[in-house]
Design a protein around this nucleic acid. Structure first.
Length: 426
DNA sequence: TCTGGGGTCCTAGGACCC
DNA sequence: TCTGGGGTCCTAGGACCC
C-alpha cells in the first residue's frame, strides 16, 4: 500500500510538506442546469433519471440546496423525491408568476445530460490545470491539486480564493475548496463548509481539525464500517485516532491501519494524475423483477454490445468478460471469465456474457450488467491522444497512483514507464 | 433508504507452478 | 510421495465512492 519511498510520518512531517487542494463543485449537475436555464436559480432543482414517461426506476443524481430543504437527497429513489417535492408542471411557471407571494412547493426536475455537464467540467478543468502543476481528476465534479510550488501556507487562503473566483467568473459555477497538507484532510476540508466553502487546515492542525467529526465523514468509512466503529465505542475521528491501532487492525485488517492514520490526518499519498481505467461496465434495472428468459437475454445483448462499443471507442482491448445479475431481494451475483489474450470482439462479449448468464436465466432478475476488464490500451492510441493534447492519456502508465494494480499484467515490461515519469515531473 | 449507474480496491480460497 | 513454503492468477463477493 504505502508505495512511497518514505516511511509513514515518523515525525518528519515538516520535511516534505505538501500543499494539497481539493476542489469540489457544489451540486454540480444542478449548477449546470442553472447555467443554461437561469430561471432555475434559487429554485429547488432535482437532476435525475427515471421520472420521465416510460421510466419507473431511477434515482436522484443531484439536488440543489433548495431541494434538499424538502428532504430530497442524492441517490434517493425518484419516487421518494417526487413525494417530498412534487414536480412542477411545465405550464405552472406562468401561473406561479402572477400568484403573488404564494409559493408552491414544487421543484424543477431535469434529466441527466452528461454531455453538457462534461463540457462545463472541461472548462473548470482548464482553470485547474492553469492553477496547479499536478491535477488528479477524481470525478466529473471533483479534483485534487498539488499546489506546493504555486503558493505558501501564509497566502494559501488568497490562492484558493483566486481559484474559486476564476471558476465562478469564467464558468459560472461555485466550488468548495479545502487546503491541507494531505489528500484526505483536504477532501474533508472541502466538505466542511459547503456550498461555496473554503477551509484551510495548516500543517500540524490536521488531527485537531478532524477530531470532532463523526466517523462516517472519513473518506472510506461507509455505513458498515461506521456501525462497526460505533459498536467498538468509537464515535468520532478523535476516538479512532486515539484508539489502539492494533485493535483496529484486528477488526478491519490493513484497512484498520489506514483508518487510524487518516483519522489522525496522516496520509502520505502524493497527488498524481489518474491512470488508465481498469474496467468498463454497463448495467440497467428492470421496472420489476423479470422471470422470462427472453427479455433478459435481450438485455444482456444490448449491454454487451454497448460495453464493447465503449471499449472500442476508448481504444481498449479486454481479456475478461463478466456479467452481473441482481436477484430479489437484492442479491448481487457476478460471474466472469478470462481469455488467454486481449481482444476487441463485440460478438464474443455477447456470446460469453450469455453463456455466463445461463446459470441465472430461470431466476427472477431485477438488474443486469455486463463488464469488461483486464484492459489493455494500445500504445499507438496513447501516443495519438497525447500529441492531441489530452491530459489524461498523457500519463497513461498505471505505475502512477496506487501501485496496487497487480491484478493486471504484472510482469509485462513493455510499458515505457520511464517515458511518462519524465512527462509527469518535468 | 427498499435500491440507478459507473467505477475502484480489498479479501479469501483454490488452482497451479516451482 | 501426504508433505514445506512462496508466488501468481483467477474468481466471487463486499465495501465504498461519486
Amino acid at each position: 500500500m504505502s508505495d512511497g519511498p518514505r516511511l509513514p510520518g515518523v515525525e518528519g512531517e515538516d520535511e516534505d510538506d505538501r500543499i494539497v487542494c481539493h476542489v469540489d463543485a457544489d451540486c454540480f449537475y444542478a449548477s449546470c442546469e442553472r447555467l443554461r436555464e437561469p430561471d432555475l436559480r434559487r429554485e429547488p432543482v432535482v437532476v435525475g433519471m427515471g421520472y420521465e414517461e416510460g421510466d419507473s426506476v431511477g434515482a436522484v443524481a443531484t439536488a440543489s440546496y433548495e431541494a434538499r430543504e424538502f428532504g430530497v437527497e442524492s441517490a434517493q429513489a425518484i419516487s421518494t423525491a417526487l413525494e417530498r417535492l412534487p414536480r412542477r408542471a411545465d405550464d405552472e411557471t406562468v401561473a406561479v408568476d402572477d400568484a403573488d407571494g404564494e409559493h408552491t412547493e414544487t421543484g424543477y426536475y431535469r434529466p441527466v445530460d452528461m454531455d453538457y455537464y462534461e463540457s462545463v467540467a472541461d472548462d473548470v478543468r482548464e482553470i485547474l490545470h492553469d492553477c496547479a502543476d499536478v491535477v488528479r481528476k477524481v470525478s466529473i465534479d471533483e479534483a485534487y491539486l498539488d499546489v506546493t510550488d504555486r503558493t505558501a501556507w501564509e497566502v494559501a487562503d488568497g490562492f484558493a480564493r483566486h481559484i474559486k473566483d476564476r471558476i465562478r467568473r469564467e464558468v459560472g459555477v461555485t466550488v468548495s475548496v479545502g487546503v491541507a497538507p494531505s489528500m484526505s484532510a483536504a477532501k474533508i476540508a472541502s466538505d466542511f463548509d459547503k456550498p461555496d466553502g473554503l477551509t484551510i487546515v495548516e500543517p500540524g492542525e490536521g488531527r485537531d481539525f478532524l477530531a470532532p467529526l463523526e466517523v462516517d465523514l472519513l473518506h472510506g468509512v461507509g455505513p458498515v464500517t461506521a456501525r462497526e466503529l460505533r459498536e467498538m465505542g468509537l464515535e468520532t475521528a478523535g476516538d479512532v485516532a486515539a484508539a489502539d491501532q492494533e485493535l483496529l487492525v484486528e477488526q478491519f485488517g490493513e484497512r484498520g491501519r489506514e483508518l487510524s492514520d487518516r483519522a489522525r490526518g496522516e496520509d502520505d499519498r502524493r497527488v498524481e494524475p489518474k491512470g488508465d481505467p481498469k474496467s468498463f461496465s454497463r448495467e440497467s434495472a428492470f421496472a420489476e423483477p423479470v422471470d422470462a428468459p427472453a427479455p433478459k437475454y435481450e438485455q444482456i445483448e444490448t449491454l454487451a454490445l454497448a460495453v464493447a462499443d465503449r471499449a472500442r471507442r476508448e481504444g481498449a482491448l479486454y481479456r475478461t468478460i463478466g456479467v452481473k445479475a441482481v436477484t430479489p431481494p437484492y442479491d448481487v451475483n457476478t460471474r466472469e471469465r478470462s481469455l488467454p489474450g486481449p481482444i476487441d470482439d463485440p460478438e464474443l462479449v455477447d456470446r460469453i456474457a450469455r453463456d455466463l448468464f445461463t446459470e441465472f436465466e430461470a431466476d427472477p432478475v431485477r438488474k443486469l450488467g455486463v463488464r469488461v476488464a483486464n484492459l489493455e490500451f494500445a500504445a499507438a492510441d496513447q501516443a495519438s491522444l497525447e500529441s492531441w493534447e489530452g491530459d489524461e492519456a498523457a500519463h497513461g502508465t498505471e505505475t502512477a497512483g496506487d501501485s496496487s494494480d497487480d491484478d493486471s499484467e504484472p510482469t509485462r515490461g513493455d510499458r515505457s514507464a520511464g517515458q511518462s515519469s519524465l512527462a509527469d515531473f518535468s
